[in-house]
Structures are given as structure tokens and as C-alpha cells.
Write a protein that binds this DNA or RNA. Structure first.
Lengths: 195, 195
DNA sequence: TCCATCATGTAAACAGTTACATGATTGC
DNA sequence: GCAATCATGTAACTGTTTACATGATGGA
């Protein structure tokens, strides 16, 4: 999947944009630090694998968007990277405005995909599906809130805002799962919903 | 990107699961009908390209999950497909319960990705970004609501529920953009927000 | 007649995945 | 001394994308 979401001539993948942004806000840093960031993020969308990050950084370097800026102080061979002037321009172009259509549009949701085909299940199974989904969404919401609180405590305003955004989405999904159960005339099996 | 979100031994991509589900709820149908469905969906996540659908259907056929079931009545060479017993089992396994962790987790959001790096913009540009994003989200929300209303009028309960889910997400994003502007101390530039 | 749509494919490119591999360093 | 982490890569694979291609059908 190509996943191009950059505005006009940007030509940046969503992951490339994110990596460029991560380097931008905490220059200079090593690719490994980026990997750690991805690994600790509550979103499991990207794998944070070495096979994704290192070739990507090489790509950005070849395009002249980042440049090596020395090594880490400790003896390990960590290469520090920073944005070039072109890199900063590319980051701004990727960010927008204008916001690319893909970015504003309805975000994908695997749960929504599944509900679309719930007709193939018997009502009792539909109820079980919805109850199970709600339980897991609530669990992930709790995990995520820990992350958000930690970021807030660290004074990271923007990462806190990101967490608030994810929070709102998860809350919306919970409300929607409840509404879905109600509309399908199923016992919603509400056990300990968070306020 | 592999995108495996199937439960346990399912081994189905998200797109494969969706196609299997689409065939399941409206058997029998042609691959072209699936393409039309994707094209008319308010979600622009998948391209609905021939290069995605046809090889995918061939894949499902080779795995014994779908089977050809005659041709369309009109003279065009449309091949109708339907689920096999194994296909129905695979669909149920993909749907869950149990709901795979990837499905319940925080869904990706390009807007959230961008807000994470808003620090590289000056406050005035941040305000412009947020206003532009909100405007576009509102526009997409309107487009999407047309689709949802149409589905409701057609009596398609589940597609209506899917629309309601997307609606909730978009609404949550709008609220969040507003909150973000407020927290950053920016003039939110509220022009004609939908209730 | 002509154009849009129906209908099915193929080919090349590419991003991101899993898995494997190596070596240095820190902490116990 | 040993395990975990730091740090950087490589190799094979696969799903999806863009772009191209063909032919038949329906309506203006």
C-alpha cells in the first residue's frame, strides 16, 4: 500500500511525514530513538520494525531532507540526524494547510468494517461480538489514558493533545457500539462502563 | 504493508475480510460490483482499483473461500461469486468474537499525526491549519451524511449503522480540533459549525 | 455514431512486514 | 560472566497502488 497523504508535490508517505516530524521536533536524534517512540506509542498501527525505519531514513537522506549530524556521546555507534532546510520545507508542505483530502476524510476503523457484515451472525452472536468489542476498546482506552497522563505530566503539550484526540475517538466508538446494540434490539451487556 | 487483523488462524487481510463480507451479504455478485461499492463508499481508504480486487478474488478462490456461480444475465461477461462453506467459516472467524487486538485499538488518524508536529509552525499558522482542517472535516461529514441517509432510506440497517459510526468519529474529531485550538490559546475561527 | 459504463485483467513499482544477523554497551 | 538493551542493518515476501490494455454493451 502506498498511502500517499501529502499535499500537492510533497510526495511523502504518512510514515515518512511522521518520521520527518519526529526528527523535526527533537533534533538531533537517532533512528533507534524513533523506533522506541513508535514502540511505546499506544497506536499499534505501525510495527516500529528496523526494516521500516532504517531504509526510510536512508531514503530521506538521499532526497536531501535529513542529514547526519555526528554520533551519540556514548561509545555505541548511534548516528544523529537532523532536518535540512529542504526537510523543514517538506515537513511544512506535508503538514499543510492546505490539509490533503485523505487526511480530513473518514478514518478507517476495523470495528466499523466488521459491523458492516454483522448480518451473517445470529442475534446472540451479534450481542457477544458487541460486548467483546466494547470490553477491548475500554481496555485500550485505559492503557492509552496512562500514556496521555504521562505525556501531560512531562509537559509535552502536543503529545497530550494527540492523546486527547485518540481519547475522543475511542469514546465515540464506545458510544457507537452502545447505540448499535440498542438499534439492533440487543441486550447491551453493560458491565462497568467508564464515565 | 501486510495489515493482518484477522483473529488467530484466520490469515485474512483487512481488505480480504471486507471483500469476503461483501460477497457474503450480497451473494452472488461480481468483482465489479464490489469495486463500485468501494468507489461509492465515503471512505477513501482503499482505491477500489481493478489491480486490487481481481487478484484478491482469485486468491480467495484458490483458497477455496469463494466459488464462481454462473454469469450475469446480460450479455457482458460478468462472473458471479458466492461464499463456500469454508468461506463462511473464515468470515465468521475474521469477524470474531474474539475481536483481534488491532481492531479494537486506537484507529489511525492523519490529522492526529499532523497535530503531533504542530510545534514547528508559528501560532498564526497553527490557527490556519486547525481552521482549514475543521472546514474540510465538516465538508466530508456532510458528504458522508448524504450517504448514510440514502442507506437508511434503502432500509440497509447495517450500512446505516456503519454511517452512524463514521459520523460519531468525525464529530469527535471536530470537537477535538476545537479543544486543540482552545488549549493552544488560538482564535478558533468558528464559522458555521453544524450542531 | 460515439461515449460512458460494464467487465476483467496484467505489469511494474513500492512501502512496510517478518525474520534474521551482528556487535557494542550497560547493569546485575 | 551474562542477559538485556542499544544500534544498525539485510533479505525475502506480500499486498496494494498506479497505469495500461482490451472488448462488449447501453443510451444519447
Amino acid at each position: 500500500m502506498k498511502q500517499e497523504t501529502g499535499g500537492q508535490g510533497a510526495g511523502l508517505t504518512e510514515l515518512e511525514g511522521c518520521v520527518l516530524g519526529m526528527i523535526g521536533v527533537r533534533e538531533p536524534c537517532t533512528p533507534y530513538a524513533l523506533r522506541r517512540e513508535f514502540r511505546e506509542s499506544p497506536s499499534r498501527y505501525w510495527s516500529a520494525s528496523a526494516g521500516a525505519i532504517y531504509p526510510l531514513v536512508v531514503r530521506l537522506k538521499r532526497r536531501g531532507l535529513v542529514r547526519a549530524k555526528g554520533k551519540t556521546g556514548d561509545g555505541r555507534g548511534g548516528t544523529l540526524y537532523a532536518l535540512t532546510a529542504a526537510g523543514e520545507r517538506a515537513l511544512r508542505a506535508w503538514l499543510g494547510p492546505p490539509c490533503p483530502p485523505q487526511a480530513a476524510g473518514v478514518p478507517p476503523d476495523p470495528l466499523r468494517n466488521r459491523v458492516a457484515f454483522l448480518a451473517v451472525l445470529a442475534p446472540a452472536e451479534q450481542a457477544r461480538f458487541l460486548a467483546d468489542a466494547a470490553r477491548r476498546v475500554r481496555a485500550d482506552l485505559q492503557r492509552m489514558r496512562g500514556y496521555t497522563e504521562r505525556k501531560k505530566a512531562e509537559g509535552d503539550t502536543f503529545e497530550h493533545l494527540v492523546g486527547r484526540g485518540a481519547d475522543g475517538m475511542m469514546q465515540a466508538r464506545l458510544d457507537w457500539l452502545r447505540e448499535t446494540a440498542r438499534r439492533l434490539g440487543l441486550a447491551s451487556a453493560e458491565d462497568g462502563a467508564a464515565p
